[in-house]
Write a protein that binds this DNA or RNA. Structure first.
Lengths: 338, 338
DNA sequence: GTAACCAATGAAAGCGCTTCCATAGTGGGT
DNA sequence: ACCCACTATGGAAGCGCTTTCATTGGTTAC
C-alpha cells in the first residue's frame, strides 16, 4: 500500500492534522514543524491520495473537452491550445469526441454521471434538443465552443465567422477587383458555411455584383469533391476578375489541383481562396489566401473562461468572440510567389 | 449537496450495504429488493460519487495518453484511435502533450504524483534518461508507443518502421527501376528517421546501387525546409531513374512544389515519395506514393493492451509491432493520374 | 495576579463508498 | 426435532483526507 498521511505524521512526530495543514494552509504551522514535516514527506516520497482529497474538497483538477470529431488537423489545434492552457492553470484535460449528435448525447451523459470533472468545454457541430437537454442539466460548469445556447447561462467562446467572411469578400471585391465570385461551401446545414455564405451574398449585393444562385455550391468540405466539381466547371469559371471562394482550405486545394491540370493559371485566369488557414494553405502552389481561424486560441480561452467559472460559479456568463484574420498569400493575385 | 447512497437506501427502505450491492454485485440481492433499489436510484437520479468509490476501489476508470506534441494531424490520429477504444472499454482518456523532453519529464512526474489514472500510454519522440527514470518508477501500468525501453517491463506498441521502409525501397528499386535514390529525413536523432534510413541504405547496398552520403539529407520534417532544399538541388537530382525518398509526406509535398516551379516533371523526370500517408498525400498533384502508418490503430491497440494490463498487472509484457502498408499513387510513376 | 488573547497543535467527526462479518430466515436431509 | 447449508440483509469498520473544535502554554494588558 502506498504511504499515507499517517505515515508522514508518525515519521515527523506530529498529528495528521498538522501534516494536512502543511499541505493546505502552511501559514498556520510553526517553521520548525513545517520543515520536519516536509522532510518526512520528501523522505517517504509521499503524495496525497487524490480520491480522499477529492472526497473532501469536491474537486478533481480535471476538465472535460468534448469535440465533434478528432479527425484532421482542425480539432487537434483546439486540443493543443486547450491543453497548454489547462496545464498552465494546473488542470488536466479529459478529451473525448463524438461521431454524431446521438453519440455526443451519450458522451455528455456519461460525463455527467461520472462527474469526475470540475468543468467541461463542449464543441458540437450541431446542437440538437437532446444535447441541449443534457447540457442544461449538467452538474458542473459548461463552456460552449463555436456556438451558443440561447437560454442556458453557459459561457461561450465563438469565432466571428461573419467578420472573417466579410473581410475576405471585401478583399476580393475591393482590392483584387473581383467581378464574379463563386462560392463553394460545406453542407447546407453547417453553421459555419451558412455564416460564411451570408457575408458572401451581402458583399456581392452591396457592391452591385451579380449573385447568381448557380454560383453557389454545397459540398462536404472534402478535397476530392471540390476537385471534381472544379473539373466540371472550370471552363465556365475561368476568366479575368473571376474568383472561387471555398469555405475551407482543403476544397480550395482541390480546386487548385483541378485548375493546374486543366491549364487554368491561378491567380491569373482565376483566383482561388480558402478558409481556416490550416497547414495545407501554405502547402499549395500558389499558396492560398485564406482566413486564419484562431483554433488554438479558442481552445485556450475556453479553458481560461471555464476555470474562472469553476472558481466563481455565480459570475455572469461571458461570451467571447474571436476575430479571424485575413491571410493574403499568392492565390488571390495580390502577392507574388516567393 | 448531491444525493448520496444513504438517500437511496432510505427511499428504498434498505441499508446502504444493499444499495452498494445493487451497484456492484447485483447477483447477491433479491429480485424484488433489486427492483425497489433501482427505482429509488432512478427517481433520485442518483450517481455514485467517484471519489468515494475510487478511495475504496483504487481505480478511476481513467487512462492517461501522453504525446510529444499535438501539432498537426499525425498525433490527432493517435488520439482518435485511442479515444474510440477507451470509450468502448468504459474508460476516459486524459490527454496531454509535452513540448520537449524536459517538459515530458515534468508532465510524467505530474501524472505520477496525482496518480488519478489507472494506466498510461506514452509516446515520446526521444527517450532521455530522465524520462526513462520517471517511467521506471511509475505507479501505474505504462504502455510505450512507437518505441520501447529495453530493461523496463512495459508493454509496447510499435510501428515496424523497418518493414515499411524496406517495402518502399524495394518498390522503388525493383518495380520502378530506380537507379539513384536521394533520402531526405527528419532530424538525425529522430528514431523513425534512423530506422527508415537504415532500410534505405540496406536496400541500395543489396541492389548494388550507389549509396552516396551526399544523397542523404537531414531536415526537420517541414514542408518549407524540404522545398528550399529541393530548389537548390533539383538540377542535380532530376534525371531518369532518379527518385527522392522523403521521410514524411509534408517534405515530399515541399519537394513536389519545388519541382513544379522548376519545371521538373514528376514522376517523369524525378520520382518523389513520402511516408506516413497523411491527408496531404492525397492532396498533391501528382498524388504521393507513400507508406501508410496505422496511427489510429496504434492508439487503439495501445489502449487495449493497457487495459489488459490494468486488469492483470502480472501478465508478461507484450510487444506489438504494427506493419505499415505501401500505398502506391502517382508520384512514383507506377500509376497513372486519374 | 488574573483575565484575555494568540499561536500551535491534536482529537475526532465525517466525506460517500465497499466489504467483512454477523444475523436471521428458509428448506432439506437425517 | 435437529443440524447444516445457503440466501438475503444489516451493522460497522475503514479507505485517506480536511476541518472544526478543544486544548495547551505563552504573552500581553490592566
Amino acid at each position: 500500500m502506498a504511504v499515507s498521511i499517517e505515515d508522514v505524521a508518525k515519521r515527523a512526530g506530529v498529528s495528521i492534522s498538522t501534516v494536512s495543514r502543511v499541505l493546505n494552509r502552511r501559514e498556520l504551522v510553526n517553521k520548525d514543524t513545517l520543515q520536519r514535516v516536509e522532510q518526512a514527506i520528501e523522505e517517504l516520497n509521499y503524495r496525497p491520495n487524490v480520491f480522499a482529497r477529492g472526497l473532501m474538497l469536491r474537486k478533481s483538477e480535471m476538465l472535460g473537452l468534448v469535440l465533434p470529431d478528432l479527425h484532421g488537423e482542425f480539432y487537434s489545434e483546439v486540443i493543443r491550445g486547450a491543453n497548454a492552457k489547462a496545464r498552465e492553470l494546473g488542470y488536466n484535460l479529459v478529451v473525448s469526441s463524438a461521431k454524431d449528435s446521438e453519440d455526443a448525447h451519450a458522451l455528455l451523459q456519461g460525463f455527467n454521471r461520472r462527474s469526475i470533472i470540475d468543468g467541461m468545454a463542449v464543441m458540437v457541430s450541431e446542437v440538437t434538443d437532446s444535447i441541449e437537454e443534457s447540457l442544461a442539466g449538467f452538474r458542473c460548469p459548461v463552456t460552449i465552443l463555436d456556438d451558443f445556447l440561447e437560454h442556458a447561462g453557459h459561457d461561450s467562446v465563438m469565432i466571428d465567422q461573419r467578420s472573417g467572411s466579410l473581410a475576405m469578400m471585401r478583399h476580393l471585391v475591393e482590392r483584387c477587383g473581383a467581378k464574379r465570385v463563386i462560392f463553394v461551401g460545406g453542407l447546407q446545414t453547417n453553421a459555419d458555411t451558412i455564416m460564411r455564405r451570408q457575408a458572401y451574398q451581402e458583399v456581392l449585393t452591396a457592391s452591385g455584383l451579380p449573385c447568381d444562385p448557380k454560383d453557389i455550391h454545397h459540398l462536404d468540405y472534402s478535397y476530392e469533391k471540390a476537385r471534381l466539381l472544379a473539373v466540371d466547371n472550370l471552363g465556365n469559371w475561368a476568366g479575368p476578375g473571376n474568383c472561387v471562394y471555398a469555405a475551407n482550405d482543403e476544397m480550395a486545394a482541390g480546386i487548385l489541383a483541378a485548375a493546374q491540370e486543366a491549364g487554368v493559371r491561378v491567380p491569373h485566369d482565376l483566383a482561388v481562396v480558402g478558409f481556416d488557414d490550416t497547414r495545407v494553405a501554405g502547402m499549395t502552389r500558389p499558396s492560398l489566401t485564406t482566413v486564419h481561424v484562431p483554433l488554438a486560441q479558442m481552445g485556450a480561452i475556453a479553458i481560461e473562461v471555464l476555470c474562472q467559472r469553476v472558481a466563481d460559479p455565480d459570475r455572469t456568463p461571458t461570451r467571447v468572440a474571436l476575430r479571424p484574420r485575413l491571410v493574403i498569400r499568392e492565390s488571390c493575385g495580390m502577392k507574388q510567389a516567393s
